[in-house]
Design a protein around this nucleic acid. Structure first.
Lengths: 212, 212
DNA sequence: ACCTGAACACCGTTCAAGT
DNA sequence: ACCTGAACACCGTTCAAGT
């Protein structure tokens, strides 16, 4: 048995039954060995999970921007990042629980740097724009994924809706009462953010306003 | 012993030693009772945690906006939400692990609705703006908090920096190499988002561009 | 209505012992 | 160099039995 076989089996276990199913004992059973052999190969559970996360992040493809304007290309990078993350549903939770969330930034970072440069940003301002998009994209996916495994939605917000109908906006009340369309919300949020980032009054300006 | 005493002791345990320290057995020891008594009062660990989360969310104060323009008032609401969350560091992880992330939206929602109305947004568009800010704020805090408990930062991104110096932006390379200032990044991100949300070409317009 | 101890089926990890 | 079983110190939960 090799260290790689251990990682392979661990990855398969997570893929099939979720991260909760990855116990040292179950893994040993899967491999047909004694629990303690695994310790010889990977040290302990901590470093096993670390290695697993590392491996999955490396699996993630590079993200290729598409679109005509820098702004739309940045949005496409964010979408790509979201897709890569959602395609590996267990990765998100594992990475997050292990305090490695920023690890998830890497696949998009290169592309984002290139695009903010193309948009005319440089230096610290460019770095902040890159980080803003990264935080926004990864944070959004964290929240979004969380809702999926959320239990029964509890109400208890009737006062809010009452207030809203009092403010004469029943359409808003209805919209907030039902769950958001995550894809749409994501894209529009990133668009708005990028819009804001590229058109701030205090510095460089993007190559024109956004059509639509 | 009452159910409330159990919750109180559980909350104290989490506050002192973190969520990991909250085991049924330790809680029993803290209370000076048998483990099994706790089960009579709270059912099981799941519902104990549910009750704990509920209680902490209710503790969170309402958020009062400040600032002159709707945009700056929305930013202040986001900052307030961030503050409330960071003030309860264990809450974030507990809520997130329990799939209740949207629960953290509530304290800010009322204020946000009011402000997007003041900014001239209505109906579905207003709802989307509220949600965009909520996702952004909570997502950002999730990522931010995660970095705090992150282990040693691994490098492995030298290629990126090489590329950057090749793109003739050493300042950007330096900025991305060191950790972000979370407060600054948060505020600027929210500002940019709100800017983008309130000045989109396809609808209502905010009361003017952002100074600084 | 409330509390108890014993028991069950799990964990991760260590360690001395094997080949 | 690699694997093993026994043992330790933990978990959450159930259940019959007490008052």
């Amino acid at each position: 048995m090799t260290r790689d076989e251990v990682l392979e089996a661990a990855a398969a276990l997570v893929k099939r039954h979720g991260p909760g199913a990855l116990t040292m004992r179950r893994l040993a059973a899967e491999l047909g060995t004694a629990v303690t052999s695994i310790y010889w190969h990977v040290g302990n559970r901590e470093s096993l999970l670390d290695a697993l996360v590392e491996r999955t992040v490396e699996e993630m493809g590079a993200i290729r921007p598409s679109g005509r304007t820098p702004a739309s290309r940045i949005v496409s990078v964010a979408r790509g990042l979201r897709r890569e993350l959602l395609d590996r549903p267990h990765l998100i939770a594992m990475v997050h629980e292990r305090g490695l969330t920023e690890r998830m930034f890497l696949p998009a970072q290169r592309a984002l740097v290139h695009e903010v440069h193309a948009a005319g940003l440089r230096g610290a301002r460019a770095a902040e724009a890159v980080r803003a998009v990264q935080f926004q994209a990864v944070g959004h996916v964290l929240v979004e994924r969380n809702r999926e495994r959320a239990p029964v939605q509890r109400p208890g917000e009737e006062e809010l809706w009452d207030e809203l109908t009092a403010e004469h906006d029943p359409a808003l009340a209805r919209a907030l009462a039902r769950p958001a369309d995550p894809e749409r919300l994501f894209v529009n949020s990133v668009k708005a953010l990028v819009d804001g980032l590229l058109t701030r009054a205090d510095g460089a300006v993007s190559d024109g306003p956004y059509p639509q």
